[in-house]
Design a binder for these strands. Structure first.
Lengths: 329, 329
DNA sequence: TTGTATGCGTTATCAG
DNA sequence: CTGATAACGCATACAA
């Protein structure tokens, strides 16, 4: 393998000069810069990122922490979109992304987590969907040993940023549209999980709407499960005018149940996954751009690693209606 | 950061001794091993994998090369399953997985690819779904600079292994079951892509079946696209008795089209993705265990990196029928 | 079985 | 603006 040393020799300069060229230092004459670049070209030199990391003590590695199948198994769209968004942006910023699943670390103590990430030379964490119960993760953040970006968890400090849509507002809006368009009075709300950050925020949106419209809302917890939403629907839907769900998966479960019951009720979901197109009937939902969110999260962790201080970022959402033919074209 | 040097000092031994303990060398006395481990424990030492990689010239990094949305955008289940399988197994084997998408490298020449992977210190590649047209990738394999495991591409050499199900047999079986159960004579086969390895193998299975049953099969290329399968179905299904598809996505497109046409034909798919449960009607399909395949691929690349020579691995498949309630429970 | 010494390919400091 | 050289943390051949 050709190293910086060979390049230096070939170009007739010192190793340190080559390094300066490689890292775009300002104080190198145009002449030597060219000599060096020519040598690099001729030799087909590839800088060794491992050696660079060891020397500079900067690995440029970030872990993308994902919660797979803790919600519902049927669809992998959301984590996949996070992965795609994160990896593509990371490549542009010259960062390495190590994908990690909650299941891989859920048995670990804080100390073990710290060791695990340190042994991998990870400097930054992007955590998707942390819940209140993930105490080890909370503690991990508080060690201050890593730069952290939280997707869908509302915590910020010097080296922690948060990024998410306004769940409260989004739930309010999509529910309002669904309810008013059909003049519904008796609302069934299928909520997410107890103690989930986004679940509570979305619930809050429903409460605000209820107050504004003077409705009482009948709420049941569906745990983001399609099956539970189905069962709740089978049990209560007959006496309700509309079903508002805290997630698309639950909306699909509800809609399929309605179809089996052979009755119609307007249903709304939340997230905007393409599976919504397969539920059989059009539904309202909140479209989140997961790819973009992950991309911005990588941006943010990069900035944190460069010394910027943590902040909260609210990204926009969109209200849409989804139907089969839109999804496949 | 506490280093091996601190551990050595604390334990009263040489650095090399600590290193030997860390790497489970045999020739270390039980006594010193304990001393060292105690010191590690007390100091909370975490080996620096970057330094280890630099020194040993072994990074333990493999790239997982995925083809996202070149087929059909609607579903991310297959790549996600590959990712999950690969990452979990890699963690057990102490390897790092870098996820890479075809789109990130498709414009690159072989040389650029080599540089890209070398600069990342990647030793092994797991490539999912390479097609015949990916000439740069073929050349990359031939450079011999990386250990490669191919999922669903039938090429093997000293440092290249292949792993896949028997697509020909699987297509033969699922089609036979679908056709015979319904006594069909006029068969519409919606094939995958031209020049795709698996597409041709599956087609081969159809040919064998046609010969055996004395049928002529009417074939159209659907490019693995749900939409194209839909259109083909709308156009030809009326005069056919069964629709055999080379992928689930196309089967879903076909089935949805049949429902819109208000006619029924038995349809079979291929892959066993959970979206099949949402098509509205039960279908036959071939279930591939993508997670397991990826897991084995990581195993295999690990072995290649340890000096084993390339081989072909055929993994089992399963014939199943999928329906909504099975999928969500 | 243990220790010494050298090198891995960079970056960064400092002197020229 | 350029060059010598000491780290970075670990592995390993070799000596003891």
């Amino acid at each position: 393998m050709v190293s910086i040393r060979d390049v230096a020799k070939h170009a007739g300069v010192a190793i340190s000069t080559v390094s300066k060229v490689l890292n775009h230092y300002p104080n190198v004459s145009e002449e030597t810069r060219k000599k060096v670049n020519d040598a690099i070209e001729e030799l087909g030199f590839v800088p060794n990122s491992i050696a660079a990391a060891l020397s500079s003590k900067k690995s440029g590695r970030v872990a993308l922490l994902l919660d797979v199948n803790r919600h519902v198994q049927t669809v992998d769209e959301i984590p996949m979109q996070y992965i795609v968004g994160a990896i593509n942006r990371a490549k542009e910023l010259n960062l390495d992304v190590i994908t990690v699943f909650f299941t891989m670390i859920q048995e670990m103590s804080v100390e073990e987590m710290v060791r695990y990430f340190q042994s991998q030379s990870i400097e930054g964490l992007v955590i998707c969907g942390m819940s209140k119960q993930d105490i080890a993760l909370h503690k991990l953040i508080h060690t201050g040993k890593f730069k952290v970006v939280l997707i869908d968890a509302p915590y910020v400090n010097a080296n922690t940023s948060a990024i998410h849509i306004d769940h409260t507002k989004a739930q309010y809006e999509v529910a309002k549209e669904t309810i008013l368009a059909n003049k519904c009075r008796r609302i069934l709300y299928i909520a997410g999980k107890k103690n989930g950050y986004v679940s509570e925020e979305r619930m809050q949106g429903m409460n605000e709407l209820a107050k504004e419209l003077g409705l009482t809302i009948f709420t049941r917890v569906g745990n983001f499960s399609e099956l539970q939403a189905r069962e709740i629907t089978l049990k209560y839907a007959r006496k309700k005018d509309a079903i508002i769900c805290a997630s698309d998966m639950m909306a699909i479960g509800a809609m399929k149940a309605l179809i089996d019951m052979d009755i119609f009720r307007p249903v709304s979901g939340f997230d905007g996954i393409s599976l919504m197109g397969y539920a059989g009937k059009q539904m309202h939902t909140v479209k989140q751009n997961f790819k973009d969110i992950a991309s911005r999260a990588i941006d943010e962790v990069d900035k944190l690693m460069k010394g910027q201080t943590g902040q909260e970022i609210i990204v926009p959402h969109e209200l849409i209606r989804m139907e089969y033919l839109d999804v496949i074209s």
